[in-house]
């Protein structure tokens, strides 16, 4: 690990901004002690340098990485950048340096701490993205499908292609509450935009009926003799449950509005609830 200069870098938070910062770090031949995105500043003792995003420079760094270590290395860097790894910018700065020095071999240096950390962060991010491909639940109202997600990593860019291909003739919005991002799609056109405080419209009768049918399907398809809550929990961790229509009465606080009409035997159900302490 190279010596750190007593300086902090700030960038605009975008990937291009980060690559411009990498360029700046090389140009000045200095490695900052701290890097943080604009808006996420911390109190530091070092002088703070703001690095302007420069598309041309970021493009040069991007091409340099691919030329030296291949597209897979760039893929790792992009995924790690989307992850919530601690001090990911410093980590990636080191990783990019290794890529330039060692070439494609860097990918195999899994016993190296930096390579290991980047690979793990990228993997965690991809894993969460894969989970979200399955666990996202849309509400349909007025020809628009909406959903709100709260991922740990900024997975939206990673799942965008999937959902745009899946619903190519539809209109939909996926709002990432954690990172303040929204994916907007309307019949062939898409946009990834910054967004705050988006609230999906309340469910109408059709939507409630669809949820009621789905909940019924979910409850019926399980085989009682094979009941295995531990297995379910490990495959579908609890942090995803608030997304899932079918899990709403199994979490304490329902995040979605009440699901449709009353069940077939409302009296018996209510009675049970009252009796249980």
């Amino acid at each position: 690990m190279p010596d750190r200069s007593a300086v902090a870098y700030v960038y605009d938070g975008s990937f291009e901004g980060f690559l411009s910062l990498v360029f700046e770090s090389w140009r000045k031949k200095e490695t900052p002690s701290v890097i943080f995105p604009q808006g996420g500043e911390q109190l530091v003792l070092f002088p703070v340098v703001f690095v302007e995003t420069d598309i041309e420079r970021s493009e040069r760094v991007r091409k340099g990485i691919v030329r030296a270590a291949g597209a897979e290395a760039l893929g790792n860097i992009e995924c790690c950048f989307l992850s919530n790894a601690a001090e990911k910018e410093l980590l990636l700065l080191d990783y990019i340096r290794l890529c330039i020095a060692n070439g494609p071999k860097t990918l195999s240096m899994l016993a190296d701490n930096t390579v290991c950390a980047v690979t793990k962060a990228a993997r965690a991010c991809l894993r969460e993205a894969h989970h979200y491909k399955g666990f996202v639940r849309f509400s349909v109202r007025g020809g628009v499908m909406t959903c709100v997600i709260e991922p740990k990593h900024a997975v939206l860019p990673l799942i965008a292609d999937h959902f745009c291909g899946r619903y190519s003739w539809e209109n939909f919005i996926i709002y990432d509450k954690t990172h303040g991002l929204a994916l907007l799609y309307s019949k062939g056109c898409r946009a990834l935009v910054a967004a705050q405080g988006f609230e999906p419209p309340p469910a109408d009768a059709d939507e409630r009926e669809a949820r009621r049918l789905w909940k019924l399907f979910y409850d019926t398809v399980a085989i009682e003799e094979r009941d295995n809550p531990r297995c379910r929990m490990s495959l579908m961790p609890k942090r995803f449950w608030s997304l899932l229509t079918e899990m709403q009465d199994e979490t304490e606080k329902p995040a979605l509005p009440q699901l449709g009409r009353l069940p077939a035997q409302p009296v018996a159900r209510v009675g049970e609830q009252e009796l249980s302490p």
């Binding site: 894969h130 491909k133 399955g134 666990f135 979910y218 409850d219 398809v221 399980a222 085989i223 009682e224 094979r226 009941d227 295995n228 809550p229 531990r230 297995c231 379910r232 495959l235 579908m236 899932l244 079918e246 899990m247």
Partner: peptide, 12 residues
């Protein structure tokens, strides 16, 4: 893609 897991732990 698994969309959910039933109470018996099987993928749906």
């Amino acid at each position: 893609i698994c969309h959910t897991f039933a109470a018996d732990g099987r993928c749906v």
